[in-house]
């Protein structure tokens, strides 16, 4: 067991953002957290990495757990000149030894000498993922890591994630809005809205009334979008 969260409450001031969260994560699992904006998904991640104080409950993590964290976005002040190579070095003490590995993770070494401020959305996502993978993490936390990627980009991103899991047995906990893809690649889905609404295998969550209430009662467009992509899910299954 890598992480065990029991009856976790997180408050910002007087506002309870997360209530009575329970979650366990084992090696090799892909678990996805879905939920509307402001439902506390990112807060949960911040609690796991220890960036915010928790007001109740416990977060147990395996001693010396190696966490690879991909944040929702990274905005670096324009006044800070730093290349991708230097940025990646900050994560890693034996950087030169595994320069090849980093090139492999990045897909090329073209990015290494680019200033982080000049990266495009897709490049930034590659760099952040590479950074998260440098230390051979036992768990990967992905917070909407596919933001700014186009449809093929999203698909190949999730293939990459599955490959990582298969080759390293790394656990993956991700927050995602790509409901259609999530459903096909996760072992478990947790639906969060300040608390856990429902959880389980993707199929059972997708058909549960709580899930439908949360995403069905949302803006019409979202639901339509979900429906639309749901068709494609079957295509991608056939492909495999």
């Amino acid at each position: 067991m890598l992480i065990k969260i029991s009856s976790l409450d997180v408050k910002y001031g007087y506002k309870t953002v997360l209530k009575n969260m329970n979650l366990t994560l084992d090696s090799g699992e892909i678990v996805t957290i879905v939920g509307p904006n402001g439902s506390g998904k990112t807060t949960l991640f911040k609690a796991i990495i220890g960036a915010i104080p928790i007001s109740k409950g416990k977060i147990y993590t395996k001693p010396n757990l190696r966490i690879g964290y991909v944040p929702q976005q990274l905005k670096i002040d324009q006044t800070l000149p730093i290349t991708v190579e230097r940025f990646l070095k900050l994560a890693h003490k034996n950087f030169n030894k595994s320069l090849d590995k980093i090139e492999a993770l990045l897909g090329s070494k073209d990015l290494l000498n680019i200033q982080v401020n000049n990266l495009s959305g897709g490049q930034m996502q590659r760099v952040l993922l590479a950074r998260a993978l440098i230390n051979n993490p036992e768990i990967l936390l992905l917070d909407e890591a596919t933001r700014g990627l186009d449809q093929p980009g999203v698909a190949s991103f999730y293939r990459k994630i599955e490959n990582i899991r298969n080759s390293t047995n790394c656990a993956i906990l991700m927050i995602s809005h790509d409901l259609h893809v999530v459903m096909s690649s996760s072992d478990r889905v947790i639906c969060v809205n300040g608390h856990i609404c429902c959880e389980g295998a993707p199929e059972s969550v997708a058909t549960s009334p709580e899930y439908k209430a949360l995403f069905g009662s949302d803006v019409d467009g979202t639901f339509a979008l979900y429906r639309h992509h749901h068709d494609h899910k079957h295509d991608s299954k056939i492909e495999r």
Partner: peptide, 20 residues
């Protein structure tokens, strides 16, 4: 190094085991 990392992202620094 930790100062640079914290300057760029306190969350990344936390995840890497530093205390912002």
């Amino acid at each position: 190094s930790p100062l640079l990392l914290v300057t760029m992202s306190e969350d990344l620094a936390s995840a890497s085991g530093y205390n912002p």
